[in-house]
Amino acid sequence: MIDPAFLTDTIGQLLGGLPLTLSLSAISILAGGVLALALALLRRSSGIGSLFVRAYVFVFRGSPLLVQIFLIYYGLSQFPALRHSVLWPFLRQPYWCAVLALALNTAAYASEIIRGGLIAVPSGMIEAGRALGLSPFRLFRLIVLPLAVRQALPAYGNEIVIMVKSTALASIITLMEITGIAHQIIGDTFRSFEVFLCAGAIYLALNSLIARGVWLIERRLSPIV
């Protein structure tokens, strides 16, 4: 029933989409991470900044990512003003629309994870740093951030895996990454089970590598027990 030649051929075709899956994941996770840090810090401020971040998190966590992708891809391109602006060379391309939507989405989840990490930094550590005469910036960079990162790492690892899975949605706006190619092969051959097996194996391998990597970093950052 299972046809090895078909499986190897399918895996070969699907691997052609791997570079796109990887670059979508990497760029949106990096950009989303930077944005998330900024949001987490703004959330600690009082007043309008904190309110903005709360609204942002509410909107991006409360609605489906696919709606966000469609809104950015089809919704924004409706406006002639935007089509004549400097942003259009980017937003014209499905690739950058997908990156933008993925980054904005992960920033909402990641900012909450980072916020949790920041809250978990013991106040005694901060006071100790202050007593050493560290400037606020150095205090943040040398003490608060490393401790918060260590605290947040397991949850952030999960978020990275979720993001890699989410890049599959880019196929809906015409990008031929792994899932897009898988859909095309299913459409041509109707052998959905075998194609699922192959594509699933690629994603699982990728995600277990990521989980392993996060675990290694976690171990490095942990104090010796």
């Binding site: 089809y74 391109s77 089509r83 014209r92 499905p94 809906i172 015409t174 031929m176």
Partner: peptide, 18 residues
């Protein structure tokens, strides 16, 4: 070649100049 699910979607993108 960009492959769309529906004709409506490529009409939108053609009109938008994408």
């Amino acid at each position: 070649v960009r492959v769309y699910k529906t004709a409506e979607e490529f009409n939108l993108d053609l009109e938008a100049g994408r």
